[in-house]
């Protein structure tokens, strides 16, 4: 079998296997690239609520969390609560936190929603699972190297590595070098 044929078969079959992971890693890559501007894993919303002046709440009251959720008509069941100061209390629900300031008579309701698929992609991309996944990710990385190298020698002729391909490859090498020169 000719070398180029082997290269083509390798490139094709590795490409099929690497397809899903390449998509996952690329999407996650874009997401975490912009982590200064947004949270790539969660969507967090905060609403400010006002405690009506007609209601008198005692910080020492044992059933304070229950009374607070009655005021705001929150139907979720309370997971736990924590008094961070004599006038502040945090009440925890499933994926929600109500932070109440009794002195200022305001409450912040924070809702946390997981970004479906994106969070799972980030979980894999950032190697959070560790263990065997580390090996899977390493094999994937080697596969990408193989895809890159075999990609260079897929075709011959004027569009191959000896023709147009060499200039485009050179351009690809110059891009990181330029930014290294600029920022490093």
């Amino acid at each position: 079998m000719k070398v180029r044929k082997v290269i083509r078969i390798l490139h094709r079959d590795i490409g099929y296997i690497a397809f899903a992971l390449t998509i996952i890693y690329s999407i996650s890559g874009i997401a975490v690239n912009h982590s200064d501007d947004w949270n790539p894993n969660y969507s967090i919303t905060k609403d400010t609520l006002i405690i009506p002046s007609s209601i008198n709440l005692q910080a020492s009251s044992k059933d304070l969390p229950k009374k607070i959720i009655e005021i705001f008509q929150i139907k979720d069941s309370i997971k736990s609560s924590f008094k961070s100061s004599p006038v502040t209390i945090d009440i925890y629900f499933n994926k929600k936190t109500l932070s109440v300031n009794l002195k200022k008579r305001i409450a912040i309701l924070e809702k946390v929603e997981s970004r479906t698929l994106l969070r799972e992609s980030n979980f894999l991309h950032l190697n959070n699972p560790k263990k065997i996944w580390t090996w899977v990710a390493d094999i994937f990385a080697v596969s990408l190297i193989l895809l890159a190298v075999t990609g260079l020698f897929m075709i011959k002729g004027k569009n191959g590595i000896k023709g147009r391909g060499k200039w485009l490859t050179l351009l690809g090498i110059l891009i990181p070098l330029f930014f290294l020169y600029l920022y490093f």
Binding site: F82, S84, Y92, N94, T97, F123, L126
Partner: peptide
């Protein structure tokens, strides 16, 4: 005790705590 808390810091990426952990033991 009321008003008391302590922070647990882990090495970045070594352990990743989910936001859903809030309110859990």
């Amino acid at each position: 005790k009321d008003y008391e808390s302590i922070r647990v810091k882990v090495r970045d990426g070594e352990i990743v705590f989910p936001l859903e952990a809030k309110g859990k033991k």
